Amino acid sequence: MFILHLTYVKPLSEIDRLIPPHVEYLKKNYAAGTFLFSGRREPRTGGVIIARAGSRAEVEALIQEDPFLIEGVAEYEIVEFLPSMAAPDLDGYREL
């Protein structure tokens, strides 16, 4: 499992211009079953995506399709983790 930590590096006016294509990017990856959760950080300095993928290389390739990264308005930090505990409703996401 991966935490994708986005940090905005350009003004919010540039971020806002790219929200529609970024949302389409998110929807595509939700439909593929890769993205599990996403949302903006508060204060609005970036965002967070929780993703499930087979490898870090897969995630690195995937983020290259994000309009935020393509346009250079955000940077990504990728954190890989192995969830060993989960709330009962999320038990299927544990990795032993």
Rank of each mutant, 00 (worst) to 15 (best):
M1F: 10
F2M: 01
I3V: 02
I3P: 02
L6Q: 05
L6H: 04
L6K: 05
T7M: 13
K10I: 06
P11C: 09
P11T: 08
L12D: 10
L12N: 10
E14M: 13
L18Q: 12
P21H: 04
H22Y: 05
E24P: 01
Y25T: 02
Y25C: 02
L26A: 06
K27T: 04
K27Q: 07
K28E: 09
N29H: 13
N29W: 06
Y30Q: 02
Y30D: 03
A31L: 10
A32Q: 09
G33N: 03
G33S: 05
T34M: 08
F35L: 07
F35Y: 05
L36R: 13
F37N: 07
F37W: 10
S38H: 08
S38T: 13
S38P: 12
G39F: 06
R40Q: 10
R41T: 15
P43C: 14
P43L: 15
P43R: 14
R44S: 14
V48C: 15
A51H: 01
R52A: 11
G54Y: 04
S55H: 01
R56I: 00
R56G: 00
A57C: 00
A57S: 01
V59R: 05
E60M: 06
E60Y: 06
L62Y: 00
E65L: 04
D66R: 03
P67L: 00
P67Y: 01
P67Q: 01
F68D: 06
L69V: 08
L69A: 08
G72E: 03
V73I: 08
E75A: 07
E75V: 08
Y76K: 07
E77G: 05
I78T: 04
I78R: 05
V79K: 10
E80I: 01
F81C: 01
S84G: 13
A86F: 12
A86G: 08
A86Q: 11
A87V: 05
P88T: 10
D91R: 14
D91G: 13
G92A: 10
Y93C: 07
Y93A: 10
R94I: 14
E95L: 15
E95P: 10
